[in-house]
Design a binder for these strands. Structure first.
Length: 817
RNA sequence: GCGAUCGUGGUGGAACGGUAGACACGCUACCUUGAGGGGGUAGUGCCUUACGGGUGUGAGAGUUCAAAUCUCUCCGAUCGCACCA
């Protein structure tokens, strides 16, 4: 029979559906594996990145099912979000209709690729049932003080007309539409993720064995913990009177207390309270005020170009020296890090140095290199060294003096040791329609009030008009009017919706719950205890600091709310590389996409999966190559065709190894090598390309012999190994010849690796020269003797000073002369 | 600037300190079919006149009996962060 991918694949996809083949068992006494790929946004169609992502997780899921694990391999859709609304604006579609149509289409694509997802646990985060529990969690978090509402300077995308979290601002632009963001002062809801900053950093250690180092580093940098000294700088008398005695001092933070004696000026952010006061009370000239305004309005990118400063004409006292230093505004001082004010040490900080040079400010050196000299007029010396001009700390090593200086400040109660983080609280409200409503009510009498849990979900109204201007919920005639859950009086609903990253922060927990009880509870503690953590989480590295940080945060919050008992959600993370074509990421705008549907139609899903897993290890980028796809197709065809060499059996054939020919023995050895490699790949290395190469080698070896039992045994094992990769054709072969009995753990037979003789390399001085054939039980002396004979032409007339034998591998003779 | 990852044939990539280039793509020759395509056999790092020999994993040094692999310096690429005090 000719290989017909369409027919075979359709057949098995129906079989799996009808037999509920991939539903997890509720028998919690079995060993489990939770295999998860990051769920997709329902953008419309699958792309090759999706195919790669789910081919990897599906291989894991199918492998562990064969190994008799209870496997949870669910799929869902991250279905709230702006593209649905943007499509609505563009095409006049309804976000809900657009979203669910896309989900239906993409689900079909998934199943036409043969992915072994649990169909019963499919979900979309825009389902009201999902919103219901999410809103419940939000209320719990508010009660715990982990959600709060506050006015603040926010990242605003003028194009998407919404606020963005810091994590969603890339190079000063919106992560979605690339529009430069502006700062906007408005009310916003925040998750108190900073409360967990220390734990989020510390627990990265627990992930060291299972997560890529790069992701751990990115999270570590993002949280950005730094230790240092915080202290107040007090104004001198003249400055106090300029400021009408409204401010006595301001607070600064430094990670370099060892440079404290070198402070020669201080700088405030243009947004600092003191600056605002001076502007409001006309303590600065109109010209200066307008310069400050320009500084504040500059985009982040402009602000980085050139250092700008303004002397405020006020001075503070140096904390340790009997002198005063000027207070400036500097555009490089950030209001949202530390206290928005810095002490400046131009001799030992590059920024301070550039600034001091530009405005001709004092440069006071206080640290010398341990060796050599530094020209302090040319550049800042930012390394550690030895202190001078530093009072009682002279001669001390910088590292040591940091500790001592902090101690001095603390003993004299003029400052204290502090930790600062780059991580900010997570702003979660979005001024958009297609998201989960934030379940709060504004009441004139009671203020900000939570909805009652029994009223959940607060669902979105469907009769809305989407124009692209403002938030449609705001303009809906009735939706936002409600009665206050506390006093029953007239009240108004919050019209902000949640950041879609809230949904993806707990979906992996929802999947743990048996769908038959989804109506009643989000999940049970018992279910989470059994299924979590996720054994293999597969997804793109682009979520290294967004989703993966938020999901870790939610897990810790849920733990503290008593919903679960673990600290980290994802035991092992596999970040797959991008799919490229012509050296660039596949994208519609570049016109270099390959449509998965077209590949499935032409070659079949098995070919697509085989190519994608064979062309590169999963973590590396993968270059699309049409002729290599063709090659994958040919392999499958051969694999299918050559199954005609085997005979049907319900059990693996018994073969008397000793009576086989050399070729037959070799074929068996390659088959079992492939099996060993497969186990290694799934458990340790995840390099599916090498596993597939092993199977190809075994096929090549089988092909040069004609023993039916060896062929049959070979196919019993190879089709088992390949089922996770090419499940349709593997199932077809297995059903026809083995009654599907070979999809089970396979024993490695040691005797196939036992040989009478073994080829060993002979190297002289580490350089490979020749080979010898030795008996496996040969002793060291006879091996060396044989090696000397074989290598005679390289050792003649020379003295052998060392002989090394690596059993079954090589002999190295070290000669002199 | 800081950090992470990585540099191996024409290409994708193997080699978990022990015979570098497995497996595949491409290419060449031949056979089969004989439009194309498909199938098969052999070859394919580079240099060298074959046998043989030499050389070779970005460059250089080191550790080791033995280095693509470990260490250091430099060069280059990719990604991430970036005026974070």
């Amino acid at each position: 029979m000719e290989y017909n991918s369409q027919q075979i694949e359709k057949k098995w996809q129906n079989f799996w559906k009808e037999n509920r083949s991939f539903e997890p068992s509720e028998d919690f006494s079995k060993e489990k594996k939770y295999i998860l790929s990051m769920f997709p946004f329902p953008s419309g169609r699958l792309h090759m990145g999706h195919v790669r992502n789910y081919s990897i997780s599906d291989a894991f899921a199918r492998y562990y099912r064969q190994q008799n694990f209870n496997v949870l391999h669910p799929i869902g859709f991250d279905s709230f979000g702006m593209p649905a609304e943007n499509a609505a604006i563009k095409n006049g579609s309804h976000p809900k209709g657009w979203t669910y149509d896309n989900i239906d289409y993409m689900k079909n694509e998934f199943y036409s690729l043969g992915f072994s997802f649990s169909r019963e646990r499919e979900l979309a985060t825009s389902d009201e049932l999902y919103t219901k529990f999410e809103q419940g969690f939000i209320i719990d978090m508010f009660n715990k003080g982990l959600l709060y509402r506050e006015k603040g300077l926010l990242n605003w995308c003028p194009n998407d007309q919404t606020v963005l979290a810091n994590e969603q601002v890339v190079d000063g632009c919106c992560w979605r539409c690339d529009t430069p963001i502006v700062k906007k002062d408005m009310n916003q809801y925040y998750f108190k993720i900073t409360k967990y900053a220390d734990e989020l950093i510390d627990d990265l250690k627990k992930l060291e064995d299972g997560w890529p180092k790069q992701v751990l580093t990115m999270q570590d940098n993002w949280i950005g913990k730094s230790n240092g000294l915080e202290f107040d700088l007090f104004f001198d008398d003249n400055s106090l009177s300029i400021l009408d005695n409204k401010f006595k001092s301001f607070d600064v933070f430094t990670t370099r207390p060892d440079t404290i004696y070198g402070v020669s000026y201080t700088a405030l952010a243009p947004e600092h309270d003191i600056v605002t006061y001076m502007i409001e009370n006309k303590l600065l000239s109109d010209e200066v005020i307008s310069r400050i305004k320009v500084m504040k309005n500059a985009s982040n990118i402009d602000r980085q170009k050139e250092k700008e400063g303004i002397d405020l004409g006020i001075r503070v006292k140096h904390p340790l020296l009997n002198k005063t230093v000027p207070v400036w505004i500097a555009n490089f001082v950030l209001m949202d890090y530390g206290s928005g004010a810095v002490m400046a040490v131009p001799a030992h900080d590059e920024r301070d140095f550039d600034f001091a040079k530009k405005y001709d400010l004092e440069i006071n050196a206080v640290i010398n290199p341990k060796e050599g000299e530094h020209d302090f007029t040319a550049s800042a010396y930012t390394e550690r060294g030895v202190l001078f001009n530093s009072g009682e700390f002279d001669g001390m090593d910088s590292k040591k003096s940091q500790y001592n200086i902090i101690k001095y400040f603390e003993d004299n109660k003029i400052g204290k040791k502090t930790t600062n983080y780059k991580l900010k609280d997570w702003g979660v409200s979005r001024q958009r329609y297609w998201g989960a409503p934030i379940p709060f009510v504004h009441c004139d009498k009671c203020g900000l009030v939570m909805e009652k849990k029994e009223n959940l979900p607060i669902a979105l109204p469907e009769d809305i008009e989407i124009t692209g201007e403002g938030n449609p919920l705001e303009k809906h005639p009735t939706w936002k009017h409600c009665s206050c859950p506390e006093c029953g009086g007239d009240a108004v609903r919050e019209t902000d919706t949640m950041d879609t990253f809230v949904e993806s922060s707990w979906y992996f927990l929802r999947f743990c719950a048996d769908a038959s009880n989804w109506e009643n509870e989000a999940f049970s503690k018992e279910q989470l205890k059994y299924w979590m953590g996720v054994d293999h989480y597969v997804g793109g590295i682009e979520h290294a600091v967004l989703h993966l940080l938020y999901a870790r945060f939610f897990t810790k919050v849920f733990r503290d709310l008593g919903y679960l008992d673990f600290d980290e959600p994802f035991d092992r993370l596999l970040t797959q590389g991008m799919v490229l074509k012509d050296g660039a990421k596949m994208s519609k705008s570049k016109g270099n996409t390959v449509d998965p549907d077209a590949i499935i139609e032409k070659y079949g899903a098995d070919t697509a999966r085989l190519f994608i897993l064979f062309a590169a290890p999963p973590t590396q980028e993968l270059e699309w190559n049409d002729s290599a796809v063709e090659g994958a197709y040919k392999f499958i065809k051969r694999f299918y065709d050559r199954s005609s060499n085997i005979t049907a059996t319900d059990a693996i054939p018994n073969i008397e190894h000793g009576s086989l020919s050399k070729e037959e023995k070799f074929a068996r050895k390659k088959v079992y090598e492939a099996l060993a490699r497969s186990n290694d790949v799934f458990n340790e290395r995840y390099t599916f390309n090498t596993m597939i190469a092993g199977v190809m080698e075994a096929m090549n070896a089988l092909n040069v012999q004609s023993n039916t039992d060896v062929w049959t045994e070979g196919y019993w094992i190879l089709s088992s190994i390949m089922e996770p990769v090419i499940p349709h054709v593997a199932s077809e072969i297995s059903e026809k010849y083995f009654n599907l009995n070979n999809f089970a753990p396979q024993n490695i037979i040691d005797e196939v690796f036992v040989e009478d003789s073994v080829t060993m390399a002979v190297s002289i001085n580490g350089k490979a020269r020749t080979e010898i054939e030795v008996a496996v039980d040969a002793d060291k002396d006879s091996i060396i003797a044989q090696a000397k004979e074989a290598g005679a032409k390289w050792i003649d007339g020379k003295e052998i000073i060392k002989e090394i034998v690596v059993p079954k591998k090589l002999v190295n003779l070290v000669v002199k002369g």
